[in-house]
Design a protein around this nucleic acid. Structure first.
Lengths: 219, 219
DNA sequence: AATAAAATTTAGATTATATTAAATATATAT
DNA sequence: ATATATATTTAATATAATCTAAATTTTATT
């Protein structure tokens, strides 16, 4: 059995490895987890010993198959709980992160498979991220960043690439949520901010960083 | 913030204090929690320092108001989650104990109040134990042990006083669950076992210890 | 009331996680 | 290629929770 701490390390390493395509560095883990590099070194040595990851001193780590499996299961649990919190308990999407971070470590497999059924086998969580199925497979779909969409193209919001509460609250404030239709009206070359039309109703200027964090599909 | 371990100590002390009417001894805590008296001493000294309980060396502990509040909140959380597991996820009553023991330590107050509403403010858990409300009040009702019911009196099962999986599975096997009607047909003076009629259908002999653990009300 | 038995506490270790500071290895820039 | 900056590891500590064994206190028994 793994401790919640060990599970969190594996989850974080998985998430970093997802983006970068190389061994995961001690520092990147320490940054993501808000801890010190020394603590990370201790823990990755332990997890390496237990065969959850492949570690070469000074060269970072990669997950083994067994480490990958654990990480994906934690992500599955977290995302299913997020669906529960939003769809059943009516939480807003910016309220659920910390709660799901605790719930994801509850250990019963039976619980997760029943929860999955209760929620009707959701394919995506409330932020638009895929829920891995019981075999660890993620649903893939075509999606682009709003930042890369040309003028006058209508798109539908699929999700967000970051789930910090402040960011999510901001999106809610300007009426952006999953499923909303957006059209890019103007691109400002200077800072790459955009003026967009939301739901055929409201015009809004959003920053480059916001448009990069919004996943959309062509309508 | 209290650790899950500290919360478990307070919960266990509360449960012992509920039955006995005196200071709770080190040994009784160690027994209930399957740990050593030495560990208990360490922990109660710590919890006493933090003012969750009143401790006199060699004389046992009693919960302070603040300790009581924590304990009741944990019990509230555990029992609400048990209702969720049975009513929503369709677990059997013997499967839920360990899962609820983990879920009860998830810390969000908002989560509990929303879960309570989602479940329609249940007054009792799947074992017939009262769910304390948000103010910490338990619903009281008249109930007796089946052991004390006279011959030929019809009663309805309200709950069980112990929730060990084997006991609960046994009850399920002989068709005893909350709400069923029971009538005592015979009392065996020798060992105080009883022959009972379950649901006007099945006759069954049950031991003294079983009849003492079944809570019923007159029909 | 003295003694034996039982309960409780203390002392000394252990394991898990984390920290800071120092030492060492790697990467970068001239 | 060397110096400097950055990243990483190691060493030395700290805290939380636990344990066993020894010491002490309380309770029960005669």
């Amino acid at each position: 059995m793994l401790s919640p701490t060990e599970e969190n390390y594996l989850k974080s390493i998985f998430k970093i490895a997802e983006k970068e395509n190389k061994a995961v560095s001690t520092n990147s883990i320490a940054n993501l987890m808000s801890t010190t590099p020394a603590s990370v070194t201790d823990m990755i040595q332990k997890l390496s010993q237990k065969k959850y990851l492949q570690y070469t001193k000074y060269k970072g780590v990669t997950l083994t198959q067994s480490g990958n499996k654990v990480a994906i299961k934690i992500i599955r649990k977290a995302r299913l709980w997020e669906v529960f919190l939003v769809n059943k308990l009516r939480f807003a999407w910016h309220q659920i992160h910390n709660i799901a971070d605790e719930l994801e470590h509850v250990s019963s497999d039976e619980l997760i498979s029943r929860l999955d059924a209760f929620l009707d086998y959701p394919k995506f969580d409330p932020h638009g991220n895929p829920v891995p199925n019981a075999d660890g497979k993620f649903t893939i779909r075509n999606q682009m960043a709003l930042a890369d969409i040309p003028l006058n193209q209508k798109v539908t919001v699929l999700g967000v690439k970051e789930n910090l509460p402040d960011f999510l609250r901001y999106l809610t404030d300007i009426n952006i949520r999953i499923g909303v239709e957006i059209m890019v009206l103007q691109q400002v070359p200077y800072d790459k901010s955009m003026r967009i039309l939301i739901d055929n109703k409201t015009e809004q200027v959003i920053s480059r960083s916001t448009s990069q964090l919004l996943s959309v599909k062509l309508t």
